[in-house]
Design a protein around this nucleic acid. Structure first.
Lengths: 251, 251
DNA sequence: GCAATCTGTTCTCTATACCGGAACGTTTAT
DNA sequence: ATAAACGTTCCGGTATAGAGAACAGATTGC
């Protein structure tokens, strides 16, 4: 939903920020061309952002500053789910030796709040703050399974059902079947749907009132996760960690 | 240095963001009062930010969204120093069992890029993105010691010499003495200057051309760091980790 | 070595759009 | 019931954003 009276100047600033994020260091003229803005406008916006620490100038090129990390880090730190889940996700990674993740939903997308690597963990490109479609990961599906069907429809309307690999769930019907299955057994599984050869087990974290707060997962290469483990020891661990988090959140 | 032709509308947006960071969830009227803006202006700005994911509305209150974490996470991930130092900082934490940190300088301030906790680590409030005066931490002093005297003066002119505890270095002269000492022995020490009872050892990370890229440290409670360790085993570990990082950066 | 063409920055002027203030519909408190 | 808050919408006067031109400096091509 768009704002009724959008502040166009602010939107230009935000467009500039997003362009800087994808292009990284670049100059005024390049940005002006790409965004079809005048050079003076780009220059004024960049320098306004610069005096506030959001943008840095190195020689003749501009790039994003760490102010965004400051604001983002502050937001994350103030989230109860992060404060409580953080040590548990780390334990989960240490105990399994694999990669553990914490995801929350925001505006219909999944946002990774953190990841923790065990000794043997694969190195995925999931850094804190990264966004992902909910239907493409076990984490996201664990969350979707705990939302109302109506809510899920709304999310799908907004973000669609983009495919990541040939195994990604392709239709709404298929997705709802998967979600029902997840609700039944209590955890979600990703068997190479997001990345070939990667297996992943996730569980939602819910408040005492049944509201979803987020999800945690363990990801490991298929050759280290037997079929038995995928539906036995691994989900047991993940569910246990989720349980501890839920207990701590509800005091 | 202020921009020549600042974009005032953008500045209002940024002010709003910073107010939201300190106040957390709050409504339109409260923000309008605090910032001496009209309600409609605040409303328009908030909703513009909202359609771009930077702000969320929960009921009748607004708060910052995780978009900032996305942008910040992206910036951090694209920094060479982070990519290379990350595993080493984690090792440092694991081996010492204490808290290890990575700091870089930006606009005369120190910015924590990450922290890693060992098994016994104290839990400080140093989260990723947090800013700190350079002269108040061992990390910052390790960086200052590798900057030109001129650069250091400029930074002090901009940010002053705020005291954190009674032990914080209080005058420029004192600071320059400390920095000379750091250059001589190769590492910086903080013995309760930032926080009573906390000892900290840090080393700068420099490129092959001698430019400072950042600094790493280990922090531990005084009762676990003997006077010998503070100038023996601990700096040895930190320096060794810094060395590995420097080697990896210069291929 | 000179001209041509980049670059980022500064300046001016006006069409634009930001936003104060008033009105609206709800919700909460008295 | 009444009042006082809230968030949201609307409108119109006016501050200002930004196109375009001109600038200085760097780099290029011939």
């Amino acid at each position: 939903m768009d704002a009724k009276n959008p502040v166009r100047t602010t939107e230009k600033t935000l467009t500039l920020i997003e362009e800087l994020m994808t292009k990284e260091p670049c100059g005024v003229s390049e940005l002006a061309n790409d965004l079809e803005m005048g050079k003076s406008a780009v220059h004024n916006h960049l320098n306004t952002l610069r005096t506030h620490g959001y943008v840095l100038k190195e020689g003749d090129v501009y790039r994003l500053g760490l102010k965004f990390l400051e604001v983002g880090g502050h937001s994350r730190k103030s989230m109860e789910i992060y404060q409580i889940a953080e040590p548990e996700v780390k334990s989960l990674a240490a105990e399994t030796g694999e990669l553990a993740n914490l995801l929350v939903e925001e505006q219909g997308m999944g946002v990774y709040l953190m990841r923790a690597k065990g000794d043997e963990a694969v190195d995925l490109d999931t850094h804190a703050g990264l966004r992902t479609s909910l239907h493409t990961t076990a984490l996201g599906k664990a969350i979707l399974a705990n939302l109302s069907e109506e809510r899920v429809e709304t999310i799908l309307d907004r973000h669609g059902l983009e495919r990541k690999t040939s195994r990604t769930v392709g239709t709404r019907e298929e997705l709802f079947d998967v979600l029902a299955e997840i609700r039944e057994r209590g955890y979600a599984v990703d068997d190479g749907e997001r990345l070939e050869g990667l297996r992943c087990v996730a569980s939602a974290i819910t408040s005492s009132s049944g509201e979803v707060l987020g999800a945690i997962s363990v990801s490991a290469p298929a050759n280290r996760v037997s079929d038995e483990a995928l539906h036995g020891a691994l989900p047991e661990r993940v569910l246990s960690a989720a349980n501890v988090i839920e207990l701590n959140i509800n005091y």
